[in-house]
């Protein structure tokens, strides 16, 4: 195996998907989840993607989908979660939860569209014995959406284990260290670049003086 430590770090970083906002187990009666929103964040579509820090909008795009949904998927692997991204920024931004009606048994033949980035996977109509619950995501931030989602779906947040907490601390420490290293290396590279530039300038000046003589 090559780069054992580097790989170990990558495996440790998997804790990010096991714990954090969105790490929750959905109740048995949730059958599927459907999301629909625009490709870009203007027109109120920052919701599915953005945190509540307006300054950091560009950096935290795709927040709910990128962060919370993978965690939900990890803890609920059998529940289809379909994302339908559209090019229509004026269109709706919705999250649809499908519940099984108490006592109803769903046919396994219910057609299930797969995710689409071109708006082809509209939210399907509820099957027989299914009810839907819609959350409007327009003009809202990911934390607010997640809160409403947790309340309305009855999801139970997963508490990180002691191991997970240790892993998370290790990952955060590594990230902090990598930030320091990044700054150090950038400084070094810039110094080297500046020196090279100065040498080139000196050379060209010397050549100009020689030519003048």
């Amino acid at each position: 195996m090559v780069g054992v430590i580097r790989r170990m770090n990558k495996l440790t970083a998997l804790v990010r998907i096991r714990s954090g906002p969105g790490a929750a187990v959905l109740p048995q009666d949730v059958t599927r989840i459907h999301m629909e929103f625009g490709h870009k964040f203007d027109g109120g579509h920052m919701g599915p993607r953005c945190d509540e820090f307006p300054l950091a909008i560009a950096s935290c795009q795709q927040k709910f989908w990128r962060d919370a949904l993978p965690r939900l998927k990890y803890w609920n692997p059998a529940i289809p979660m379909v994302v339908n991204r559209t090019t229509n920024q004026e269109g709706p931004a919705t999250l649809t939860l499908y519940f099984r009606e108490p006592g109803a048994t769903l046919s396994s033949e219910v057609p299930q569209p797969s995710s689409s980035s071109e708006g082809f996977s509209k939210a399907p109509a509820p099957a027989e014995g299914e009810r839907v619950l819609m959350i409007d995501m327009k003009n809202r931030h990911s934390t607010a959406i997640l809160k409403e989602f947790m309340d309305k779906s009855g999801a139970v947040a997963v508490k990180p284990t002691a191991q997970d907490e240790a892993d998370l601390a290790a990952v955060e420490e590594l990230e902090a260290r990598s930030k320091i290293d990044e700054a150090r290396v950038r400084k070094m590279n810039e110094a080297a670049k500046r020196e090279k530039q100065m040498i080139a300038q000196a050379h060209s000046e010397a050549a100009a003086i020689k030519a003048a003589l």
């Binding site: 998997l14 998907i17 999301m35 989908w65 949904l69 993978p70 965690r71 939900l72 998927k73 990890y74 692997p77 979660m81 379909v82 994302v83 797969s114 995710s115 689409s116 980035s117 071109e118």
Partner: peptide, 15 residues
Amino acid sequence: NHYLRAYEVGRPPAV
């Protein structure tokens, strides 16, 4: 597979 499916959630399957 469990992890990979979580990472790929919401992506068009053909992509």
